[in-house]
């Protein structure tokens, strides 16, 4: 675990934002967590980070259904970022949609590691973060 690792939560639902923060704290992800209400806000933040030469987030929890720019719109723009800048960024789609066509579509994006159906629980989150070495297993 590196203290410079940050996590993005991209979701317009305040309840989900609250829940994610609670869970991340509970699994002892002690690094910075940034919350964005839609895909555009998140992209703007990424561009700002790159402009300042800062490290991009290690993990992005991405909702699909959002105003202004939804999860798909975010992914479409995200893959246009030069590869060397984003190769260490892992994207997890976290959506309440159980529509198989959404899961199928998400698989087509190489940058998407997995599709998690809401509600995400403590065990799932732990497993994801452990695999990435972002938290230490006990």
């Amino acid at each position: 675990m590196n203290s410079s690792d940050i996590a993005f939560i991209v979701d317009d639902d305040p309840i989900h934002q609250f829940g994610m923060k609670v869970l991340l704290k509970k699994v002892k992800f002690s690094n910075e967590v940034l919350v964005f209400h839609n895909g555009q806000e998140a992209l703007d933040a990424l561009i700002r980070l790159m402009d300042k030469g800062k490290k991009l987030p290690s993990i992005i929890f991405l909702d699909l259904n959002m105003p202004i720019k939804d999860g798909w719109g975010f992914l479409d723009d995200f893959v246009k970022i030069p590869h060397q800048n984003r190769e260490k960024v892992v994207v997890y789609v976290v959506s309440s949609s159980i529509n198989p066509s959404d899961q199928e579509k998400a698989k087509n994006y190489e940058v998407v590691s997995d599709y998690i159906i809401k509600p995400i629980d403590e065990n799932q989150l732990t497993k994801v973060l452990e695999e990435m070495g972002l938290i230490n297993s006990l």
């Binding site: 989900h16 609670v22 259904n65 309440s96 159906i117 809401k118």
Partner: peptide
């Protein structure tokens, strides 16, 4: 789509929140 997405998202939230309520390891504030 409305049923699957919108109803589900509320249901998911309720599940998550109710788990927090029963989780005694969480802070009182939370």
């Amino acid at each position: 789509h409305i049923v699957s997405h919108n109803l589900r998202s509320h249901a998911a939230n309720l599940t998550m929140i109710s788990e927090f309520l029963t989780d005694e390891s969480l802070d009182e504030d939370i």
